[in-house]
C-alpha cells in the first residue's frame, strides 16, 4: 500500500519579522526559544509545536493560519 507523503508546512515568519523590524534574537526572546530555532523555522527545516506556532502568531498579531500554511 503506497504511503501518503507528509504535507509540507510553509510559513511567513521571515516576512512578518522583517515587516515588524525585529531581529531573529528579538523574536526568539519573545516566544521563548533559541535564535537557532527561529533560523531553522524560517528556513522550513523545523516544524514548530502548536504552542510555539500560536506564540509566534500572537507576537505578530495574526491568526496562526496567516503565519503557517499547509501545502497539500
Amino acid at each position: 500500500m503506497p504511503r501518503k507523503s507528509e504535507p509540507q508546512l510553509t510559513n511567513s515568519v521571515r516576512e512578518l519579522r522583517t515587516e515588524s523590524a525585529m531581529t531573529q534574537q528579538d523574536l526568539a526572546d519573545q516566544v521563548g526559544v533559541t535564535r537557532q530555532t527561529i533560523v531553522a523555522l524560517e528556513g522550513g527545516a523545523y516544524t514548530p509545536s502548536l504552542t510555539l506556532a500560536l506564540r509566534i502568531a500572537r507576537t505578530f498579531g495574526k491568526r496562526v493560519e496567516q503565519v503557517f500554511q499547509l501545502d497539500e
Binding site: 526568539a28 526572546d29 521563548g32 526559544v33 533559541t34 530555532t37 531553522a40 514548530p48 504552542t51 510555539l52
Partner: peptide, 10 residues
C-alpha cells in the same frame, strides 16, 4: 541572563 538555553527543538 534571560536568554533561553534549551527549547522544544533541542
Amino acid at each position: 541572563g534571560q536568554t533561553v538555553i534549551v527549547d522544544e527543538r533541542d
